[in-house]
Amino acid sequence: MIPPEGIGAARRGATGDPPRIDVPDLERSLKNVRTLFSALMSVVTVTASVVALYPLFSVLYLLIVRGGRRLGLSLFTELPPGAGMIGGGIGNAIVGTLVTVGLAAVLAVPFGILAAIYLAEYGDGSRVAGVVRFSAKVLTGMPSILTGVFAYAAVVVVTGSFSAVAGAVALSILVLPIVMLTAEEAIRMVPHKMKEAAIGMGATDTQTTLRVTLPTAMPAILTGVMLSLSRAMGETAPLLFTALFSDFWFEGGLGEPIATLAVLIYNFSGSPFDNQIDLAWAASLVLVAIVLVINLAGQALTKRPERR
């Protein structure tokens, strides 16, 4: 702080008496209004963050406590019980979820990766690429229930029945843009040097892409694929009126309605029977476990190369 007499005064003081410059208190004290405000805000914000994370722990706790009750072999091997019946399991729904999501992956993953190759490599900077990217972003923002409405119109109405395929189509539209945009990012991360080396040796664009770029980008692409599939697994809204539900085992009929964990949880959540509600919790536990495992595995794929 400059003394009232000005800098000159302080300098003059330096020749004779030791200068007396009025330095503000540098110690942090809560008596200072500004420091107090800062500290209070910190407390409020950290508290808010803890509040924000509370639901996650509450959900996980209940899943383990309520869902864990029914955890046993019969949960995986038996069919869902009817109203008022005891026992039963969610075996067909687990199979159905895997079938539907698997089918959605078959539809969406190659599509997404090929389009991503175009976006990142061949069509980079072109107007088409811009429009494609925009379309993909619009698709990511599209409410999941609307993909169900679309699959209903395009598949259920056309084929005349609710089916596993219709469910898979609905889910694939959710998976597609995520795969495409993450794969594009991943392909862009591949160092130019590597591609140039391949091209310099006379490799065609295709050989460069398939032998150099894609293998290098693969972990990151797979992360995107797994994250999108884990999201698709938990999706319920697009399946409600496409895959519908089935009380029986999946026997290879992709043209028939199929049971899924998500729809089972929804159907049983409003049930007046404790047995079905318990199964809804158990199904939630299984679903969240599968989703988290895929999610964490996907993240682990890209984290490993970073550490090297």
Binding site: A52, V59, G234
Partner: peptide, 15 residues
């Protein structure tokens, strides 16, 4: 926080 986003909405509904 990312895990919070990973929990399916139907599970939040049940909760």
């Amino acid at each position: 926080v990312e895990l919070l986003a990973a929990i399916p909405s139907v599970v939040y509904g049940l909760w």
